[in-house]
Amino acid sequence: MDAQVETATRELSYAQAIQEAMAIAMERDERVFLMGEDIGVYGGAFQVTGDLVERFGTDRVMDTPISELGGAGVAVGAAVTGMRPIFEFQFSDFATLAMEQIVNQAAKMRYMLGGAVSVPVVMRFPAGSGTGAAAQHSQSLEAWLGHVPGLKVIQPATPHDAKGMLLAAIEDPDPVMIYEHKLLYKMKGEVPEGYYTVPIGKAEVRREGADLTIVATSIMVHKSLDAAKQLAEEGIDVEVIDLRTIRPMDRQTIIESVCKTSRLMCVYEGVKTLGVGAEISAMIAESEAFDYLDAPVVRLGGAETPIPYNPELEKATVPQVDGIVKAARDLVTGAR
């Protein structure tokens, strides 16, 4: 696969995989350090940094005040001057407080200065719904940042990719934003020991199929794979692509798949309108794959509403397996 030096694997959770990537990076490179709210002795709101402070000390696992704008800016300033900071937003929603530094500074500094500097900062964004945390702690705003040239935006869906893509992000000379779905943190998977990277900007075909291409992001990859399993029993053969990176997008993998299956469905948790699916659909409409389409493109995205508190309502806000199965079946059988 994409890994450079893969050794033995063992099962780790997604959160453990990220933690391991950060530990390896800090051991390899003394410029790497972590910043964020309550990432030290508390271990992070989702225990992603865990006990790293005991291993690396408070200088390298730095608790910040509750100052998202300032903290993000400090990380940008440290990156420009030679460090390799990894900044954790406690919840991705709180990045709205730091948009100035992310969008106006981190993304543009290299360009504004005509290439005189690079901004090798990594920012981590725990995102998504399903935790009962309601409207201000559950959003999926990755498309906001995907809209900004100068940033790279990734959404690893498995523990393997979480570790490998984070290590790639730390090596990357440009600002990389990592959206981590909170419901994935406890998910387990095979993770190689040691150092390896998974390239940014490359999608992965998770399941090959002939009848329909589903391009999914983050947790929706798993829901789409579950749906594909059910659909296979009905004789519908679904190809599932894990997009992994929303900027820069791997257009070729999607185009090739759609040319093969002649049908496209995009599944993502962010609000449907103007979301990642809009970009994928438009990209296909502009590409040679358009001529291969046998049916209109379908987008399954988040409802046009803030994330509600009530568990039933919350579930109804974002695509679920049943909905994916039905939409895919309708698309393939021409029922829509």
């Binding site: 800016g73 300033g77 440290a78 001057t81 460090m83 100035e100 106006n104 500074q105």
Partner: peptide
């Protein structure tokens, strides 16, 4: 000179980050 800034206050956290580098290094 790490640069002028079109955003009022934009350079303040960046300067603190540069100073953090100076301290760390």
């Amino acid at each position: 000179n790490l640069g002028a800034n079109g955003i009022v206050g934009g350079g303040l956290p960046i300067a603190v980050g540069a100073a953090l580098t100076a301290k760390k290094m």
